[in-house]
Design a binder for these strands. Sequence first.
RNA 1: AGUCCUGUAGCUCAACGGUAGAGCGCUUCUCUUACAAAGAAGAUGUUGUAGGUUCGAUUCCUAUCAGGAUUACCA
Length: 1103
Amino acid sequence: MTAKLPTLSSQYEAKTTETKWQTFWEANEVFKADPKQAGDYFSIVTPPPNVTGSLHMGHAFNTALIDTIVRYQRMLGKNVLCLPGTDHASIAVQTIVEKQLKAEGKTRADLGREKFLERTWEWKKESGGTITGQLRRLGLSADWSRERFTLDPKLSESVLEAFVQLHSEGLIYRGNYLVNWCPASQSAVSDLEVDNREIDGNLWHFRYPITGTKDFIEVATTRPETMLGDTAVAVNPTDDRYKALVGKTVTLPLQNREIPIIADEYVDASFGTGCVKITPAHDTNDFEMGKRHDLPFINVMNKDGSMNENAGEFEGLDRFDARKAVVVALEAAGNLVKIEPYKTTLPYSERGGVPIEPLLSTQWFVNTAPLAQKALADLDERNSPEYVPDRWKKVYRDWLVNLKDWCISRQLWWGHQIPAWYAVEETGGVITDSTPFVVAKNSKEAAKLAEAKFGKVVKLEQDPDVLDTWFSSGLWPFSTLGWGTEEQSDYDRYYPTSTLVTGFDIIFFWVARMTMMGRHFTEAMPFDQVYIHGLVRDENGAKMSKSKNNGVDPLVLIDEYSTDALRYTLIREVAGAGQDISLQLNRKLYNQRVKDRAAGKEPPAPTPGSKDNSLSESVEASRNFTNKLWNASRFVLMNLEGQTPEQLGTPDTAKLELCDRWILSRYHQVTKALRENLDQYSLGEAAKQLYEFIWGDFCDLYIELVKYRLQGEEGESKLVAQQTLALVLEGTLKLLHPFMPHITEEIWHTVVQKEATGQVSLALESYPESNPALIDADLESQFELLIGTIRTIRNLRTEAGIKPGEKIEALLQSENDRERTTLESGQIYIQNLARVKKLSITNPSASKPLDPPATKPATTPSPDLTAGTLKDRKAWADRTWLEKLDLRDLADDLLDYLANYQKLAITLWGITLTILAFNVLKAAFNGVHRVAIVSDLLEDIGFFYTIFFVKDNLLKSTDRQRTFGNLKKLKGDLFGEAAPAVEAVAETVAAPIVTPSPTTPSPTHPEPDDLRSVGDHRQTFAGVVGTVQVLIPLDGLVDITALKAKLEKDLTRAQNEAQSVRGRLSNQKFVAQAPEEVVQGAKNALAEAEKQAELIQARLSML
RNA sequence: AGUCCUGUAGCUCAACGGUAGAGCGCUUCUCUUACAAAGAAGAUGUUGUAGGUUCGAUUCCUAUCAGGAUUACCA
C-alpha cells in the first residue's frame, strides 16, 4: 500500500485523462492481437472510412458501437482482433484532388498519371491521418499495428488475385453496355453513387408520322433530346388500337429515319397513349428491348454530356441545350403535341452533382448471378450470415435475388488499375472496344501470356481505368488478413470474422459484395453476424447530409463534453431494430463552436445554471453521468482508508447487512441483464440499465444507506460496508468500461492502486459474472417497501412544509406482520434517509396501546438516536438515570438503539447488560400497571451506553442479529405485542426470507380510536404505502388545507385503482379464464387499494 | 406504385396479451462535509384514428391517416 491515500481530484479532467489513456493503450499495445493466444477468437474488421477528409457523426456512432462490442468481447476473455483501416475511395478522392488542381488552373492531364497519383498520395497521407486520429480519439480499441489501407501492396495483391481468378472463371467480362455515366466526372459510377431526387419536370408529347400515311403515332418523353437516337416505337402486342400498325414504320422527325413499330410486352397500354419511343442507347429499359428486337443502338451523346455527330444539326450542344433546341425544332415542324408538367425522379451523380446519363460504353463487368447464388444458398440453408436485427435479412435477400451485373471499371486514375493488357497494335495502336487483351497480375506475366496467345512478342498497354472501389471493399474482410499472400497467419486464425457492424444504407453495396466475394474466394461467409444500425439524425430529425449542411463534427462534442459522454449518448439512444437515433443539438451554439475551433479557441468552461447554454442536452446528460460516477468513486475512495478491494477482501456473506445484501443482489441482477443484453446487441438497453443502477441504486440509495456505518466506529459493520462498496464499485467500473473506457480506466487504477502497464489495464480485466446465489428478488421487493416508506415520509415532510434539515418523528402502523418485519429490519435506513429521529413501528390492531405512542412535544429535544455522531451520544450519555419512565417506549428505544448501533452491541458485555436491563424493566413492569406518559426517557439508556462504550471492542464475533431477535422476543413477552418469532427476526436481518406482500390484510379493521390516538395529542400528517400507514406528528400549526388536499388526492387515487380492479374482478369471464396468478394479483391489488382508501378515509374524517 | 419501419408524457425512448414507465425538460424547496454538472418532492398520457380477435389490446389482425426508409420507375 502506498503511503499516501489514493484520491481522485475534485474535478474530472476529461480531456487530459482521455488523451492519457489513448496514448497509453496504443504505446503499450494493449489491443495488439496475438494469433498464438489460445481460446475462442472474436474478430472485427472495421468498415474503412473514406480518406476524404474527416469523420462525421455516423462514423462516431459506428465506432462507438464497434468498440463497445469489441471491448466487451475482450473482457469475456476472447482472443480479440479489431482491425482498423481506411478506404481509398477512388472517385471521391480524385474529385477532391482535381478540385485542388482546378484552383491552381491545372487539370490532371496537365500533370500526367504519375504526377497526379503522387499528389493524391500526398493528400491521402494527410487525410488518412486525420481519420485515424479521429478514430483514436473515439477510443477505438483497435490493433493499430494491423492498420490497413485498400491500396496497400498486400491488399492490392488480393485485388489482382481476385480479378484474375474471376476473369479466368469467366465471371469478369468486358462488354458494351449502358452504365450510370457521370458527365461531370466523366466516369461510370456505381448505383451507390447515385442519388435519386424527385424533381418537377415535363412530359413532352410528340407525334411521329406513320410512313406512307397521313396518320401519326403519339409518344411522350421526359428527355426530348434522346429522340434523336430513337430506333423504334413500341406498342403492347395485345393493344387493339395499334395491332395493325405493328410491322409498319414511322419517320423519325428531325432525323428523317425510318424506324419500325414493334410489339413488346413491356409496354403498358394503359399509360399515356400506349406508344413508347425506344432509344436503346440511352435508356435501360429500351436497351433491353433493343436487344430483344435486334434494334440498332445509336448513341447521340459524347462522354462530356454534349451531343455527338449522330445528333445531326444538334452536334456539340450540351444535353440540356439540345433538349430545348429539339423541342423548338419539333414544334416548328408541327410535331409537338403538348407539354405537361410531370413529377419524376432523376438519378443524380453524388460526386458531380449533375443528372446521371445512361450511356452505352465498353466497360468491365462482374457476372454476379453465380456469386449471388452461393451467398443466397448460405442464407437460405444456414441463415448465414445472421442479421441483427433479423428484418434486414429480407432486404439483403431481395438484393441477392434481383441483382444485375456489376460494372467495375471507372474512368479514373486513383485506385486499382485494371490488370488487363491490350495488344494495341491489333487495333491501330489504340485501345478500342475490340482490341484483344490478356489479363494477368503484372506486365511480365501479361507479356508471357500475350506471347503465347499471339505467337510473338506484342506491344502491350494496360487498361487505363481503375476498379470500382467496392471491388476492393468486397475483399476487405480477408484481404486485410493476408488472404492470397505469403503471410496468412491472421487469416488462418481470425477468419471468418465474427461480426460486421455497419449501417443499413450499405447492405447492398458493401455487405452483399463481401458475402459474394467472400463466399466465392474463401468458401466461407466472411462474418458470422451482421449487426445493422441506423443513422444519426440531426436536431430536427432530418438525415444528416452534405447537401443539407446539417452534419455534426463529433470532435466538437468531444471537446465540449468528452469522448465517453459522446459515446455513451450515442449508444444509450440505440433502440431496438436498427432504428435511427437522434442527436440533440443547439445549432447556433454549434456553429459558434465550429468557428471557434477553426480559430483555435477552446470551448468555454461550462457555466452552471444558465439556460440555453447547452450545446447538446443529451450529451450533457451523459457528461453529468460521468461526473456522478467520478464523485461517487471519490466518496468510496475516501472511505476505503487507502485499502484496495483486494486488500479489503470479499465480505463474509453471513455478515452482510440488509442493504449490503440488497445492493449485491441488484449488482448481480444488473450484471446478468447486462451480459444478456450485450450478447444480443441490445446496447442501448444495457447502457440504460447501468445508468439506473449506478445513479439510482448505488449513488442515491446504497451510498446514503451506508454513510452512517462508514462514519461510525471501526468494526465489522464498517468493514463489511467498505468491502461491499469496493466490490460493487470495482465491478461496476468493469461493467461500464466498454461504454465509457476512459473514465473507468482512470478510476479503476486509482481504486486498485495498480500502475498501468501493457498487461495491467481495465480493458484486459474480466467482465463481471453474475452470481445467482446473491440475487434475491424477495429482498429486492422488501426494499421496495422501505424505499416507498422513505419516499412517503419525505413526501409528507414536503407537504407539511418541514425544513429538509429538520429531524422528525414518525409512526408506521401496519397490521401486516411481514410489512412490519420489513420495516423493522430497515428501520435505520428509514431514519437516515427520511431524517427521522424517532421511528415507531406498531401493529394498530394487535393490542390496545397502553398509551398513545407519540407524546406531547418534548420540552427538551430528544437525543438523536440515528445520527450516530459522538456528540449526540455524549449528550445522550449525559442524561441522568431515571427521570421518568415509559417502560414500553423504553424497551422500544432500547431495541432501536441496538438496531442502530449493532456494532456497539456486539460485545458480549453489551448484550448481557441489555438483557439485564430488560430483566430490570420486567421487574419494574410487573409492579406497575399504568405507565406514565413520558417522552424523554432515554437517560437510562445513557447509563447502559456508557458501559457499552467502555467495552466496545472487546469481542468481535457474536451473532448480534440473533441476539437482537431474542431481545425483541423478550420485549414481546414483556408487552404482549405480536413481536415476530425469534427465528423470523433473526432471518429477517441476516437473510430475509419474508415474502413481500401480496398483502393479505387482516379482516379486522383498525378502530378509529387507534387512528385517533396520535391525532388526539398532536396534529398528524398521514400517508399510505402498501398497507402501511405513515404518520408524522407535528408541533405547532398545521396546514389543514394542505393535509386535506394531500389525503384527498391519495384517496382518489386509491379509489380509482380499487374501482378499476373491482370492475375487472366482477367480470365472471375474467375470473374464470384468466390465469390464476393474474386473478390473485388483481385480488391482492384490490385488497390493498381498498385498505388504503379505508385508512385515508378514516384519517380524513378526523380532520 | 411495391416493400419495410415508425406513430406512447413537451422532447428522446421503454413496457413475454395482464391495465403504461425512464431520462431530459418543466414546477417547488434545499449550496446537508462525494457530487448545485447535485439532492428532495411534484405535475404531465382517450398509447395516431376506426373496427376486429380476446375475459383483457400499447402489444395480435384489418382498414385508414401521418412521418420515414428503400426499390422500381410509365416512356
